[in-house]
């Protein structure tokens, strides 16, 4: 089995075998991060550009650490300190970056589809690090890895995703990913945050969190994107919290050995209560740890073979 792709743009386009290859490769990479010398020479002389048009701590740091542990040279560009503020278009930025001959560009962009456009423009690999409300493939892969490690499998598990489904690229990637590997996905959130025809993605829809998490093995809580909440999708954060936040009371409806994921950053007290986020069910920090391994695997699989 091999990965033939130039780019990783969306979970939707990956096959089950490709996802499993990425996960098993990531499992091997976990050990590298536990060594005293956390570095392997594999991607020596490769250049990776992290191009971030949106703020990010976790994802950007994770990609950077992954690149550095593989001995690649990682360059970070955040738009606030780049020519983007002078009005340069993504197309022009891409062409100029390409002239410096990078091997991979990691792109986060507020517009859905931006990585796909970039991938058509440049010869090097492109990894989507989150585009608008479309997809965030590396996040779904690290979630899959975290769940697989805990349960030893994905097939047959019940996954509940709660929160703002409509705006969430994390939800979209995870619905595709878990469904492809044979899990059953339920989603829950206020009706204003449910995209129309979401059931066509193969998941069950609920308007009450309690109903979605019943029998679930995994509960994934999404961040309420306060920066995208100016259009009144819910009356107040307090009301949202009361009805939809995962707290210990709602958690009583779930199985005793349920695990909880959150892609971060957490709005404590809004979508998840602190005692749940920090509690024994939480795998949130394990997700972060696995994020580095998954991104190392993506770099390895995209640049470890020749595409000619």
């Amino acid at each position: 089995m091999r990965l033939k792709r130039k780019d990783i743009l969306a979970i939707e386009e990956l096959t089950k075998d490709e996802i499993e290859l990425i996960l098993s490769t990531a499992e091997s990479f976990k050990e590298v991060s536990e060594r005293e010398i956390k570095k392997v020479p594999t991607l020596r002389g490769r250049t990776i550009i992290n191009l971030f048009y949106e703020p990010s701590t976790r994802t950007r740091t994770s990609f950077e650490i992954a690149a550095k542990r593989m001995s690649a040279d990682a360059i970070n560009i955040s738009t606030s300190s780049s020519s983007v503020v002078k009005g340069e278009t993504l197309k022009d930025t891409a062409r100029n970056l390409e002239a410096m001959n990078p091997d991979c560009i990691v792109l986060r962009h507020p517009s859905s589809g931006a990585p796909e456009m970039l991938a058509r423009l440049v010869r090097c690999s492109v990894i989507n690090a989150g585009d608008g409300s479309h997809e965030h493939p590396s996040q779904a892969l690290l979630d899959l890895l975290t769940v697989k490690e805990r349960f030893g499998r994905i097939a047959g598990l019940k996954i509940a995703i709660a929160g703002d489904i409509a705006h969430s690229r994390v939800a979209r990637s995870n619905i595709h990913g878990f469904a492809k590997l044979g899990a059953e996905v339920s989603i829950a959130g206020p009706p204003t945050m449910m995209p129309s025809e979401i059931e066509k993605m193969g998941c069950k829809m609920f308007y009450k969190v309690e109903d979605a998490i019943r029998d679930a093995h995994v509960i994934m809580v999404l961040r309420i994107q306060l920066e995208r909440q100016k259009t009144g999708l819910f009356p107040t954060a307090r009301e949202y919290s009361k009805l939809f936040a995962l707290d210990s009371k709602k958690l009583e409806h779930a199985a005793k050995d349920v695990v909880i994921l959150h892609p971060g950053p957490i709005n404590r007290g809004i979508e998840i209560s602190s005692d749940v986020a920090d509690g024994k069910y939480s795998l949130i920090l394990e997700q972060v740890k696995n994020g580095v391994a998954v991104r190392m695997a993506l770099f390895y699989l995209l640049m470890g073979g020749s595409r000619e």
Binding site: L43, Y300, G304, G305, S306
Partner: peptide, 8 residues
């Protein structure tokens, strides 16, 4: 690494 078609 990067020379063979298949990533080992």
């Amino acid at each position: 690494i990067g020379m063979k078609e298949v990533q080992p």
